[in-house]
Amino acid sequence: MLRFTDEHEWLAREGDVATVGITTHAAEQLGDLVFIELPKVGARLVKGEAAAVVESVKAASDVYAPVSGEVTEVNDAALADPASVGSDPQGAGWLYRIRLDDPSALDGLMDEAAYAAFPK
């Protein structure tokens, strides 16, 4: 199940774990990425709080946790090659995986069609 937030993040849920990344639109807006910072495995994330940082040449942008839960995995390949987040943000450039406190937390988020229509 693929869901999108109005902060331009995507979540793909399998069971009670969701993979989180930034959308293609967000990556295009940020431009060339040169550095990313991800939460630690085991960290508790609270919805709405800064969870990761993506930095372009010009600026640093916080990526907020779209849901609450515990980080189970981070994308080490993206840490080593931040450009991959920019070039394939909804694929190889995923950021982290989170065990959802509440698996129904994604229910209120946009599906692909709704996000496509969401004003950007």
Binding site: G31, D32, V34, S56, V57, K58
Partner: peptide, 11 residues
């Protein structure tokens, strides 16, 4: 601020 090539390539 940038063209389609992007900031890194432009630089």
């Amino acid at each position: 601020v940038q063209y389609p090539a992007g900031l890194l390539k432009e630089h």
